[in-house]
Simulated scan of single mutants.
Amino acid sequence: MSFVIDAAARIGMVYLRVSNMERSLAFYREVIGLRVLSQGEGTAELGVQDSSAPLLHLREIPHAVPRPRRSGAGLYHYALLVPDRKSLGLALRNLIASGIHIGQADHFVSEALYIADPDNNGIEIYRDRPREEWERDEKGHYVMGLDPIDWEGLLAEAGDTPWSGLPVGTTVGHIHLHVSELPTAEHFYNDVLGFELVAQMADSALFIAAGGYHHHIGLNVWAGIGAELTPENAPGLDYFEIVLPTEVAQMALFSRLQAASVPLQTNRGTVIVRDPSGIEIHLIVQSQAPH
């Protein structure tokens, strides 16, 4: 692959459709530990305590048609990366207290908890192990597993510290998408946008990243090969941001997209594009993103 995306590229805000704003806000405050930073007519932006940078944008859609998980292309989960293991332990303790169903996995590079919001939008809360502990296989791919998490160890890390929500330093670490098929998705994200393939799960999932991360984007066909995009009248993913460090890095992607004849729009410095499954992506520059 000749073109590589800027090493500082990262995932920015995630924009979701929800069916009941009041219910969603209660969930995100009490279960996840985010706080409302701003609220408008049928919309809200959420972030962490003592920070003005939103991580999540919610949009209430009228007469929403509920859909089960894995029923179309779009969001599998978005992932909130906490800064340390104690923060993950505190989040786990609060999730247990809430009574919500919790999935979990030790991926070797990270420890992860999996839940879903009231509209079945998937959420991961995770912490990374130090990069020097990440291992690669003979192909140069990261070795990622599905071992059981050290549940008791995480709770011991939390100790008796009061829970006050997700801490400063929490970011959207990655996003994982259901796509219609892998070959076209791989071509778009790797060959056009320039993300690097860092791991693969048989013929059903790919993990891609910038700057040597274990993955910024997951791509899978677990909703079925040929799955259609989740419709606008159902809860799900509106779009997500890829944040570039400079306008030069953004223009490099703009040129790549044009050269590949990918339809795109621009709006106030944002490049708007859809991947082959129809998932909308906004390419923005760091200076546009909230700090």
Rank of each mutant, 00 (worst) to 15 (best):
L146W: 04
R35G: 15
L95P: 09
V143W: 00
S71Q: 13
L154F: 07
K86V: 12
I115P: 06
D137A: 08
Y114I: 03
G99W: 03
T43V: 13
R131C: 00
H101C: 04
D117I: 06
E135Q: 14
R136L: 10
G40Q: 15
S87K: 02
L58A: 11
R35H: 13
A112Y: 00
I125A: 04
R70K: 14
I115E: 05
H107P: 08
R59W: 12
I102V: 14
D119K: 06
R85V: 14
E135A: 09
G40F: 13
P62C: 02
E60W: 04
D137F: 06
R59T: 15
V36I: 15
I123N: 03
I61T: 12
I125F: 05
G89Q: 07
P54C: 12
R93V: 07
E45S: 13
E135C: 01
E152W: 03
L34G: 07
E133G: 00
R129S: 00
A97W: 01
V65K: 15
A91M: 09
E124P: 01
G99T: 03
L88P: 06
I123M: 01
L154N: 04
D84Q: 13
I125M: 06
R131N: 00
H101K: 13
G40D: 15
Y28C: 09
G103F: 05
N94G: 02
A97I: 01
G140P: 02
D50Y: 13
P130K: 02
L81T: 07
D50C: 10
E41D: 15
D106I: 05
V48D: 04
L34Y: 09
N94W: 03
Y28R: 10
H57A: 15
Y126N: 01
G89M: 05
Y76W: 09
R29H: 15
K139H: 10
I100C: 11
G74A: 07
R131S: 00
F108D: 13
P83K: 08
Q104N: 13
R59M: 13
V143P: 00
P68Q: 10
L92R: 09
R69H: 13
L95K: 07
F108I: 14
D119G: 04
L146E: 05
Y78C: 06
L92T: 06
P130C: 01
P118S: 04
H63E: 15
I123R: 04
A105T: 07
R127I: 07
K86D: 11
E152Q: 14
R127Q: 13
Y114N: 05
P54N: 12
H77R: 06
G153I: 05
H141W: 09
L81H: 10
R59P: 05
L75I: 10
A64P: 11
T43P: 08
K86S: 12
A64R: 09
K86T: 15
E45Y: 10
E138F: 08
G99V: 03
R93D: 12
E152H: 12
D117M: 04
L56I: 10
V48C: 12
E133T: 14
V143S: 00
R93I: 08
S87E: 03
P118H: 04
L58V: 12
L46P: 08
S87I: 01
H57S: 15
